[in-house]
Design a protein around this nucleic acid. Structure first.
Length: 334
DNA sequence: AAGCCTTCCAACCGCGTTTCT
DNA sequence: GAGAAACGCGGTTGGAAGGCT
């Protein structure tokens, strides 16, 4: 499908394997590429009735598709906001930066690229960018040089040991490539004395929060905080440490958006190495072994920790979605 | 011209999380 | 609180199209 068309040529009703699946197991449900007619039916139905209730949508719309298939088609192709065409160089650059920060969190990355879908970005990454990085001698997963993969910390050793005993696919494929970062340091960087968002950390190097292997999860899940999550916001504890939400205003849209923008900004990511030159090459990823002395650098480093950055990221990206129904709790106003 | 190989990407699958009952 | 249903995400698949021999 070099030149993706709105739909496959009629008649090319391609021989998708007629596997029985939980989702489309009902006899008579169609699979494979969508026809223009189906697209039209789905589009006009959603324009009329709105998105959602995907499970029942096909029936209501008169489509012989499963809900999942309808949702996918709408999200990835039919939505008016979907931008088509080549990924621009600046978009490519942004994808690279975001991937370095987030790993394979395609939906989060897509959230920062208006009009692009997670599927599109994922495909672009797999077909273009990962190869590009490999050709430059950079591991596309870690954004570090390909053959200098020596474990430098016990955590890394542990993770490597784990990886050697577990099939690759059962490890969290989304794990952030930069695991060794402290949570509180991030907070101290983010906080602001004047607006009450001060995280008040005396010595940011006292409380490293390593992500141990047990918190790895799979799929689109969230990291395993030992407290309930409210759409990505840790409730009261993070990784067992007392980070009282009541005391810290975890993040706000504005705060986080500007923070994120700073992360994807050249000046921040291309920061020169700090401290004893302990590895910090902007082209090859950020080394997290040594505590940073530069506040900006520490923001970047701290953001590499899923225990912090993922919930925070949700504040900025997901909650900014127009149609998102759940708003984050504003602890400042409570 | 024909056959094989490679690239691309739409669509599927399985699973985790969230919401509903 | 438990179980079921719905939703959303990331990984994978496989057919079409283009390139190569």
């Amino acid at each position: 499908m070099r030149n993706p068309s709105p739909a496959p040529a009629p008649g090319s009703a391609v021989a998708w394997k007629a596997k029985v699946t939980p989702c489309c197991s009902k006899v008579g449900l169609k699979r494979g590429p969508w026809t223009p007619e189906e697209d039209e039916v789905l589009s006009s139905f959603i324009r009329r009735e709105g998105e959602g209730k995907w499970r029942t949508l096909p029936k209501r719309a008169g489509l012989l598709r499963c809900g999942k298939s309808c949702r996918l088609r709408w999200m990835n192709y039919l939505r008016p906001s979907v931008k088509r065409g080549q990924i621009a160089p600046d978009e490519e650059d942004l994808i690279l930066r975001l991937h370095r920060l987030l790993g394979n969190r395609w939906s989060l990355i897509a959230g920062r690229l208006p009009g692009r879908t997670d599927n599109e970005i994922k495909n672009y990454w797999n077909t273009h960018l990962s190869k590009k990085l490999i050709s430059q001698g950079i591991d596309p997963r870690t954004h570090k040089p390909l053959n200098t993969d020596k474990p430098s910390s016990s955590l890394e050793r542990d993770n490597n040991a784990l990886a050697s005993h577990v099939p690759a696919t059962s490890l969290n494929p989304n794990a952030n490539p930069n695991p060794n970062i402290q949570f509180q340091n991030a907070c101290s960087s983010l906080g602001n004395e004047n607006d009450g968002t001060n995280f008040n950390v005396h010595n940011p190097y006292d409380n490293y929060h390593y992500f141990d292997g047990s918190t790895l999860n799979h799929g689109g899940g969230w990291p395993s905080f030992d407290g309930p999550m409210v759409r990505g916001l840790p409730n009261s504890h993070v990784a067992g440490e007392a980070v009282e939400i009541g005391d810290v205003n975890f993040c706000t849209d504005d705060l986080f958006s500007s923070f994120l923008n700073s992360l994807i900004n050249d000046e921040v990511l291309q920061q020169e190495p700090v401290n004893n030159g302990s590895i910090c090459n902007s082209e090859q990823g950020i080394d997290l072994a040594a505590p940073p002395s530069d506040p900006l650098a520490s923001e970047v480093l701290a953001f590499g920790n899923r225990a912090f950055w993922e919930p925070a990221f949700m504040c900025s990206t997901v909650f900014n979605e127009e149609n998102y129904s759940v708003q984050p709790t504003n602890h400042m106003n409570n």
